[in-house]
Every structure is written in C-alpha cells, then in structure tokens.
C-alpha cells in the first residue's frame, strides 16, 4: 500500500466536503437537531432504572456523536456509487494503485470529516456536564475513530458494486440505521424486552458506543482496569477490522467474464 495515495484520496474527500456547504450543514445539523429536540423532549419522562439523576440530553449525547459518525460515513459512501462507473474513481482504478489505498483513502477521509464534526458537537459537552479528563479525551478519540472506520468501511463495502444511490439509501435505512438504533444510543438496555437486549448485546456498534460513553464517566486507570470496557474495545476493534477486510474484498473483486458453457 502506498500511504501517499491514501492521503491524497483522503484529502480529496475533505476538500469536497468543505466545498459543499449543504453537506456540512446537513451532516452536522441533523444529529444536533436530533439531540436537542429528542433530548429536551424526552428529558422530563426519562427515568431509567438504576441510573440516578441522568437527564436525557446527557444520556443521548454519546449516541448523537455516534449518529454523526454514521451520517458522515454514509454521505461519503454515496459518492462511491457515482464515482466508480461514471466518474473520478475510474481513473483511480486504471492507475497502478494498490486497492487498499483506495479503501484507506475513502475511509480515512470520512473519518477525518466525522471527527471534525464531532469536535463541534463536543464543544457542547460541558453544557450537559460531560467533561472528560485529558487521558479520557484520548480514549474518546480512539472510540470515535474505531466507530467511524467501522461505519464507513461497512458502507463502502456495501456501496461498492451497487449501481443506484436510491438502492443504497434503502439498504442504509434497513441495515445501517438499525445498527445505530440498537446500540443503546436512544435508550438504555436495562428494562428493554429480552429479545431487544439480546440484539443490543450482539450488535458490535453497542460496544463502540461504550467506548464513546465511558470516557465521560471514568478516568483512564479505571477504564483500563475495567474488563467490560476492555471487552468493548476488543469487539469494536475486531468489528472495524472485519469491515475493512470486507470492503477490501469487495474492491479487489474485479468483474470477470464467465466460462462459455454449452456453446
């Protein structure tokens, strides 16, 4: 893999992002509005068992961060569909470039965009009383990066080979959104019906959410001694790696003619 190629492709993603103000407004605005409206609306009635005096604005905050990562990833992947057969990616595919550079460029660029957006939302964290320690901020960053890589690589792998953006939207709504909804982003696992808490438990995105939520509430030595946190870290890392492998496999598969049969 050539790192310079990946960096150049990631840089392109970033430039495209900041040159389309609608995209900036859309992908920051939507999670922000969700967070403010849902958070404020649900706060009075939100009394989860065994979670003390936590307001919904505060509870939903890590979920809103995760939603931002998801949306940034989806927006980036939509371009793949148009680019591959009718645009920019044609010349990338014809160039002597390793396939991993293409995946790394796209996923890296999307992660960069997602982190920049999260940074804006993070400015609001002290308003709901969430202030991580310096070390905690680093662990938070790690969690954000892992979740972003997982989402984008998964979206990329799905988008690659699809030929309509409408089809991708459909897949996103029934596949990627539920991953987020069933992560504990919207509601806590405690008290949920058993089948639902089972789904949340096996959803790797729930573990990514743990990585984002935990650093706000515990300091670094505690986290690194907590088996639950470490397990979440392991699962999220494996999930991100598998998603990368999946999109790499998709990119590596070149459309191939079949053997003539019975002619």
């Amino acid at each position: 893999m050539n790192a310079r190629v990946a960096i150049a492709l990631a840089w392109r993603e970033w430039i495209r992002f900041i040159r389309q103000p609608q995209r900036v407004v859309g992908s920051i605005g939507q999670p922000l509005l969700f967070w403010l409206f849902l958070g404020s609306g649900f706060s009075p009635s939100f009394k989860p068992p065994g979670m003390g005096e936590i307001g919904y604005l505060e509870y939903f905050y890590p979920g809103a961060l995760l939603m931002m990562l998801l949306f940034a990833g989806i927006f980036s992947c939509i371009t793949v569909i148009e680019d591959r057969d009718q645009g920019f990616l044609q010349s990338v595919l014809a160039a002597p470039v390793a396939r991993f550079s293409i995946v790394a460029g796209k996923v890296g660029g999307a992660a960069l965009i997602a982190l920049a957006q999260c940074l804006i939302l993070l400015l609001a964290a002290p308003l709901v009383g969430l202030v991580p320690s310096a070390g905690g901020a680093l662990l938070l960053l790690l969690g954000l990066v892992l979740a972003s890589v997982g989402f984008t690589a998964l979206g990329f792998g799905i988008a690659w080979g699809m030929n309509s953006t409408a089809g991708f939207h459909a897949v996103m709504m029934v596949f990627l959104m539920p991953l987020w909804m069933l992560s504990g982003a919207l509601f806590p696992t405690q008290g949920a019906p058993q089948w639902l808490s089972f789904l949340i438990g096996v959803n790797p995105v729930s573990h990514a959410l743990t990585l984002i939520r935990a650093p706000f509430y515990a300091d670094v030595p505690h986290l690194l001694a907590d088996p639950q946190y470490l397990a979440a870290l392991g699962i999220a890392a494996v999930w991100a790696a598998l998603c990368l492998a999946f999109s790499l496999w998709r990119v590596g598969r070149v459309e191939k003619g079949v053997k003539p049969s019975g002619i």
Partner: peptide, 9 residues
C-alpha cells in the same frame, strides 16, 4: 484493457 474487467479467457 483499462483493467476494469477481466475476460473469460
């Protein structure tokens, strides 16, 4: 020729 597809043979 552009490397976007592989032939059958």
């Amino acid at each position: 020729l552009a490397g976007l597809m592989r032939p059958s043979s």
